[in-house]
């Protein structure tokens, strides 16, 4: 960090202050409102889809407590299918957080990694690399649930 500071100071072409100013003024800014609105709309659509599937499974006779499981499984399946046929990344470039935050984003990350590394074999390629992006979600999610569980058991 100090080396870069020093270089920026000694490199006559790159004055620190000027460069930071340039960055603020001339870097293309993300279209914040457009992104927020689309994220909200698509996130809402995913939630509506989930609710519709839940109602369907309840109507098919699955019990109230159990109905969540096939719902999530179906949403994961649909997101994986859309990833595999190459549509999901196009939806995500518009929807952004709307499809990245729900379980659809999770499914997409696993499927995308599995597809990408299939060429390196099933065991060391797909199998090993599949959870590279989702791994931290799984790990921190499980650890947090464990800690909260302990706390709630004590309280």
């Amino acid at each position: 960090m100090e080396d870069i500071q020093r270089q920026k100071e000694t490199n006559l072409l790159l004055d620190n202050h000027w460069f930071n100013n340039w960055n603020k003024l001339k870097q293309p800014k993300p279209p914040l409102w457009k992104n927020l609105i689309y994220a909200f709309l698509f996130g809402g659509l995913v939630s509506i889809l989930g609710q519709a599937l839940l109602e369907m499974y309840l109507a098919l006779g699955v019990s109230q407590e159990q109905a969540g499981n096939p719902t999530v499984a179906t949403v994961i399946f649909l997101a994986s299918l859309l990833t595999a046929i190459g549509i999901f990344d196009r939806i995500a470039s518009i929807a952004g957080a709307g499809v990245a935050i729900p379980v659809t984003g999770f499914a997409n990350s696993i499927t995308a990694m599995a597809l990408e590394f299939k060429r390196e074999g099933f065991v060391l390629g797909s199998g090993a690399k599949m959870f590279s992006l989702a791994g931290s979600i799984i790990m921190f999610g499980v650890v947090t649930a464990f800690v909260i569980g302990i706390i709630s058991a004590i309280i």
């Binding site: 870097q27 293309p28 800014k29 993300p30 992104n35 990833t83 595999a84 190459g86 999901f88 990344d89 939806i91 995500a92 470039s93 929807a95 952004g96 499809v99 990245a100 984003g105 997409n108 990350s109 499927t111 995308a112 990694m113 597809l115 990408e116 590394f117 992006l133």
Partner: peptide, 17 residues
């Protein structure tokens, strides 16, 4: 893309730059 950033089918929003 695969080496430097994300798998090709991964859904993320690319910034304008």
């Amino acid at each position: 893309e695969r080496q430097y950033r994300f798998p090709t089918e991964y859904g993320y929003q690319r910034p304008g730059y």
